[in-house]
Design a protein around this nucleic acid. Structure first.
Lengths: 315, 315
DNA sequence: CTTGCTTACGAGACTCGTAATAATT
DNA sequence: AATTATTACGAGTCTCGTAAGCAAG
């Protein structure tokens, strides 16, 4: 076999991880170099210079500028940015591997999720985790269902906890967990309070307190009604189960909420009827970027949320 | 949405691309630091120091040493090496993107392949390519079928050209091309010389000049005979079609070789009978690492070998 | 006694922050 | 006037190669 005849020396002599970090940060800061400088605890001139050095080294222009403004990335710039992001993810992996190997009980775990899971699904796991790993900084980023994936893809959050119906929608690795049950809640005095089985049609006969359509539950509700050609009357739409419960208690209407959001509600004037079967199956899922190194404590956290899951190992 | 509260500054302040290149090169040079130093055009002490700096930065031991010998990688070392390789691939991608954007007609293309394709499949494409792109250095690495994938996976070769039966065997992206036909070659005076259709059983009645079992063709032949429970008599086994043809001409036996290795053999005393149908379908295929940036001229080369293929684009 | 990793040291290069400059909103 | 990118410059740091050390086969 003939090999090693022309092994090229170094990949690129001058390009540095710092330059690529800066490039990524400029993208994250929406093309404002001074913000990037602030976030990276360095000076604006330093940022500017490093980008120029990188451009000089590569022999291409990465940023479209006009005088004192950055307008955007060039086509090459976009490609380079993509590679830079993947490259920096691997650099991050190396750091995590080392920390893990040192069995350091320090680190951080950013979890991006929605109100529902922040308030109910994660309450107990997070309390337990925080107690077991006092050295780990837990960041809980709360946002709407549609924005969750982006934050994990960009690396701004480590894992996502969300309600998922089908898989394969994004580039993320989705670890499906326990099914998410749904319940109809009605005031005790409501005509449906003692119904055995209710149908979508039954429900649609009464004024509804709806879930915000940007949430998974709202989306699901809207889809189901549309699929059956049922016209429902929404008196109010809200973004989370707590708010919805409040209004149902006040008699404004009835509502369908995830069952995990209902603790001992029956005592508090609400009647709870399981209606999981009326909707497509949903599960609680943890999502993460494929290829990411999962530190031991992250794996532990994931297993608390999604018991018995097989977290794929890197290498 | 709550974000950007805790954006961490730089990934790792001190780790450099050079250190990771060195780590990879030590692995490639089978744990000999001085070889790595030589290949990277630098000094041994420099190499040694950079590894120590990296270990210090990460806080872990990457290499198992004894006095003046490197014994191997530690477990963390292996993990870090893996990430380093992926990281450096992305660094390489950035370099390639930049070169492509500058429309530079310089660069290199390492193709790893077997004798068969080096001699026949690639002869014309390479000649044409070299003429069209005088600035591109073409490296042809020739090895056995089993070692091809490794060289592409490790990045020592850019693409592989090989005979493939099924897909999914390796981590590589396989672009299947034209089918590989096979022919029985016999001396003109041989009893089979004027047979209409021959079977494996017919063939096995005569002494055979075999292909080396390390090659795809040899493997295929052995498999087919075993599958039909046929016992054949091999008088000789050789590594390439040229050698085999020579011995068939000398009357030592008959043989099955890829049809592309036969040009105007009928005139030269050989009788050629197509027997493609006796074996599982094989194709000529180009393989490359998934995620690699494919420069314009590389794509052009691939399309010359595997016409009409869709080369997946990065980004 | 050669091979091969490690340590020591000094010259040279490079990075980075401050300050000044210029252009835009 | 405030914001933002770029240029200039000097102090401090770091890198790298040569030379010496030392253990092993």
């Amino acid at each position: 076999m003939i090999a090693n005849c022309y092994v090229e020396s170094f990949i690129l002599n001058r390009m540095t991880l710092k330059q690529l970090s800066i490039l990524r940060e400029i993208a994250r800061q929406r093309l404002v170099m001074s913000s990037a400088a602030a976030v990276l605890y360095t000076s604006q001139p330093g940022i500017s210079r490093q980008i120029h050095l990188l451009e000089e080294e590569l022999g291409v222009v990465l940023l479209r500028r006009r005088r004192n403004r950055v307008l955007g990335f060039t086509d090459v710039g976009k490609s380079v940015l993509g590679s830079a992001q993947r490259l920096l993810f691997e650099a991050e992996n190396i750091k995590l591997m080392a920390q893990d190997a040192r069995e350091e009980q320090v680190g951080k775990l950013s979890v991006v999720t929605t109100h529902l899971h922040a308030r109910y699904t994660l309450a107990q796991p997070i309390a337990e985790f925080a107690q077991r790993h006092p050295g780990i900084q837990l960041h809980l980023l709360q946002t709407d269902a549609g924005s969750i994936a982006k934050l994990v893809e960009s690396g701004e959050a480590d894992i996502a906890v969300s309600t998922e119906r089908e898989r394969g929608s994004s580039s993320l690795l989705v670890l499906p967990g326990p099914p998410l049950r749904r319940s109809l809640i009605v005031p005790r005095a409501h005509p449906l309070a003692h119904a055995r089985r209710v149908t979508l049609k039954d429900i649609a006969r009464y004024p509804l307190v709806g879930y915000n359509p940007a949430s998974r539950s709202g989306e699901l509700m809207a889809d189901a009604l549309r699929a059956h050609g049922i016209d429902a009357q929404f008196v109010l739409s809200a973004s989370d189960a707590d708010v919805i419960k409040t209004y149902v208690l006040q008699g404004l209407g009835i509502a369908i909420v995830p069952s995990i959001a209902l603790e001992a509600e029956t005592a508090k004037g609400l009647r709870v009827i399981d209606v999981t079967h009326l909707f497509p199956k949903s599960v609680i899922a943890v999502s993460l970027r494929p290829g990411v190194y999962v530190r031991a404590f992250v794996r532990e956290f994931i297993e608390m949320v999604v018991p018995g899951v097989k977290v794929p190992v890197l290498e």
